[in-house]
Design a protein around this nucleic acid. Structure first.
Lengths: 138, 138
DNA sequence: CGATTATATCGTACTATACGATAATATAGA
DNA sequence: TCTATATTATCGTATAGTACGATATAATCG
């Protein structure tokens, strides 16, 4: 079973390598990780960012500040607890995140269009199942 | 069909978000991109790195130099053409790459073990099909 | 030998990353 | 209300990452 998982990972990295967007952007690693976190979680504040990246809260605060300056994030204060910050992606933030973590839509569509209907269906089902189950993990 | 591709990307990013390894490493974005390139391609030299990352050849050369110093890459001179450099991953390089681009094997196995045999099969097939077709893209 | 190709190095500049110390502000509890 | 705690922000400082022009080295090609 372990070799099975390794095999899946090889497929996974092959897919990303061949279908990712070109690397034209000068974007840092931590910035992308923060964008990913903010996109997928609701109610994200500075402390959650710090915990997620295993960095101190002051460093996290500075990341957030710079990302707001660059118009990647929007900061809002919590309604119930005004100490808290609620982070959201801007349109620019969403675009940057997309180009750096998603599969290139043109390439993916091109590949999908080469497939038989049954194959397409298998892929859609597989991704759906795995994403749903992944969400319940831990 | 376009919405289909967007849906797949949402599944894709959800899967990575929930199943990736924890972000404990202080590793830069360009370093990971270079590791990915070297892993997936044979006969990679400094110029290919520069082209792939859209950076100048001297910058690429310095990335490679630092990565060799950190024991992430091994440099070898081309047998036929000694001007060329051939890059390979070290064990450390492979490990770093794995922890930063693959799915966490424990988590993935945990998720897979919750699935019915038929679901497992669908996922394996889907990933296999997509990775094979992706390789023929462009 | 001269031109080309592939890589390396030097100097320089700027950005990113990180943390300790400290501060500001909001909430919660005695 | 006063104090403790929680959350975020800022300052000073240090180190590493990123990048490029200019220049150099070395191998190959014609």
């Amino acid at each position: 079973m372990a070799s099975n998982v390794k095999e899946l990972n090889e497929y996974w990295t092959d897919i990303y390598f061949h279908l990712h967007y070109p690397h034209t952007e000068k974007i840092s690693h931590q910035v992308i990780r923060i964008l990913q976190l903010v996109e997928k979680k609701e109610e994200i504040g500075v402390n959650e960012v710090a915990t997620y990246l295993h960095i101190s809260h002051n460093t996290a605060s500075e990341h957030v500040k710079r990302m707001v300056e660059k118009n990647l994030l929007i900061k809002e204060r919590g309604l119930l607890d005004e100490r808290k910050v609620l982070l959201h992606l801007t349109k620019v933030g969403k675009d940057v995140l997309h180009r750096n973590t998603s599969l290139d839509e043109e390439k993916l569509e091109q590949v999908m269009n080469q497939l038989a209907d049954k194959e397409k269906e298998i892929i859609e089902q597989a991704f759906k199942i795995l994403s749903e189950r992944a969400k319940t993990c831990l």
